[in-house]
Design a protein around this nucleic acid. Sequence first.
DNA 1: GTCTATAACCTGATAGAC
DNA 2: GTCTATCAGGTTATAGAC
Lengths: 203, 203
Amino acid sequence: MDKKTATVDLSTEDKIKEAARKVFTSKGYAATRTRDIAEEAGINLALLNYYFRSKEKLFEIIMAEKMFKLFNVLAPVIDDPKTTLEKKVETIVVNYIDLLRENPDLPLFVLSEIRTNPQRFSEQLRVGPLLQNSALVKQLKEKRPDLNPLHFVITLLGMTVFPFIMKPVVFDALPNNAKVFDTQVQERKKLIPAWIKAILKAK
Amino acid sequence: MDKKTATVDLSTEDKIKEAARKVFTSKGYAATRTRDIAEEAGINLALLNYYFRSKEKLFEIIMAEKMFKLFNVLAPVIDDPKTTLEKKVETIVVNYIDLLRENPDLPLFVLSEIRTNPQRFSEQLRVGPLLQNSALVKQLKEKRPDLNPLHFVITLLGMTVFPFIMKPVVFDALPNNAKVFDTQVQERKKLIPAWIKAILKAK
DNA sequence: GTCTATAACCTGATAGAC
DNA sequence: GTCTATCAGGTTATAGAC
């Protein structure tokens, strides 16, 4: 079944959500007009308010979805005592790259909105506790007690996520962009775990 | 001389630019109202248009400044044949961290605006050629002909820039945030070059 | 150069017919 | 549930006095 047909088959409510996902993530909350969403969904402007009451309510629904996607790659892996540190790294890298290949502007969207309106997200963002006593941190402290776990996590995520953040700058200007980017990102599934290994080994 | 006094001493034009820098970078183009800038500058709304004709013209001036700051850390280093690869890495890391410590939301601001409105920046973004035949790339190919230079550059920049991009998510939720963040970032001036060294050595 | 007042436009949301 | 028409409020930009 092709995508166009699938989209048409959606309920009106889902058509609006689908359109909202697309427009919000590509332009951001402030630059998005409810009219853009309505047009993208192929429905009337009034229906947006009929189903979701307001632009802001609709946005909150989409945003919650996106943040869940983003954090849910980390959450189940980070506190699993049964897997090794190496395996955790590999899983995080592969899962994130697969997720972001399908949602390339997810990180920049979420980070931009948090920056634009930090107090709106102050409650959801309790990353400290999640890290503090996780299995990953314990395993890391055992292997390298001298290395601050936060440095490690940020470096790991930076290696994985940063290509997607830089995509508009580096790749969209390149001649053969889409293909080149995807190849590079796939390569990083193996490169990043190897690099992390080298970093942990070096003293 | 304290900052308040210095600000008051500025010409009206510079007061507006200074205010525009602050408001644009913290809220983004779309969410910024010219009234916010006028108020921040302590002047009347009409003066903004008198000096800069429009919100968009003013934005373009600020944005050009910011992009220059961001790319100018890389440009002089990347094609210098007189320094070693190691020295280049060290210089890039230290210079970027110093720049970003003073302009923490510079990367997220620039990247967000590029994403929101890619065609506006399509001309400025010719990163490919800049990299293609640079001294850095040559040195890298000599040391590790198997490693795609783009992987290297993105990893290096990711390690350096990503903490600033994650700041609102990870650190602003932490108890002792400002101090912790700054300490960590300073530590990375030494950590990142060491990590890069380990990565280049590992086969 | 700087201000007040206002024009011209845009955007989110709703009323009311079908 | 879905549409058209429209309102109410806000935003950029300018006219015109000083």
